Amino acid sequence: MADVIAAIQFMSTNERSSLPCEDWAEGISGNKAKSTHWQKVFDEHPEFFRRSPNYEGYYALIWRRASPRLFFRKEGRLLTQAEYNGLPDLDKTLVSRPPVPTQQIKTLIDLAVELHAKAREQHTDWRWWVPIVTSFLGSFIGVLSGLAFHK
């Protein structure tokens, strides 16, 4: 849970919207060697993170993927479509999706906490059927025993 929240926080505000796991690992935990750990976190939580369809090993926060690529990192501002179209090709490589606003980051974290709580609740609630099955099996064994010894 803490890893998901850390990833949401870092990926929401990073100037790049999509990076390889090694770079996310270095940014989130300070250790590129933990890239396989972060890849696992991203893969286990597709409700928040997606693998890039265009670049091998790249991941992004889904919330940012919903925004158009109009954030000019060089100037730290959003461009209009006309401004983007007028950029030289080299400058277009400096365009990313905009960072997620603070209120939306809070919404994402609240959603992660809520989903985690529901998952834990479902995990503990799987035991509801144990007493029912046990009593049914006990009755069934009793009936079979009665039939077997009644003869």
Rank of each mutant, 00 (worst) to 15 (best):
T36N: 10
K34R: 15
R51E: 15
D125T: 11
G142D: 03
N85L: 12
E75P: 11
D110V: 01
T134N: 03
T36A: 10
V143Y: 10
A7C: 12
P53M: 11
V130D: 13
F48V: 02
L78T: 03
N31T: 01
D110A: 01
R97P: 00
S29E: 10
S135F: 15
H116G: 04
L144M: 12
R73H: 08
H150Y: 10
W126A: 14
V4M: 04
W129V: 15
S96W: 06
E75L: 04
K106S: 07
K151L: 07
N54H: 14
S52W: 07
P46R: 00
P20I: 12
G27W: 07
L19R: 12
L108H: 01
S52Y: 06
R73A: 13
G146I: 03
A2N: 12
A60Y: 09
D43L: 11
H116T: 03
Y59K: 04
T13R: 07
H150E: 11
S17T: 06
N14K: 14
Q122T: 00
S17L: 11
S139G: 15
K118L: 15
D43F: 15
E15Q: 14
R51T: 04
T80Q: 04
A25H: 02
Q81H: 04
E44Q: 06
W24Q: 05
T80H: 06
L61T: 01
S145K: 14
G138D: 01
R64F: 05
W126R: 12
W24D: 01
P98A: 14
H116R: 10
K32G: 15
E22H: 03
R97D: 00
L137G: 03
E56D: 14
T80M: 05
A2I: 10
R51F: 15
E83W: 09
L137S: 05
W129F: 12
I141W: 11
K118A: 14
L115F: 09
D89C: 05
H45P: 00
D110N: 09
R120Q: 15
F136C: 10
P101K: 05
L70D: 09
S135H: 09
R69K: 13
T80E: 02
V133T: 09
V95L: 08
L111H: 11
G27C: 04
E56Q: 05
L108Q: 04
K92D: 14
K40M: 02
D110F: 03
L90W: 13
I8Q: 05
A6P: 00
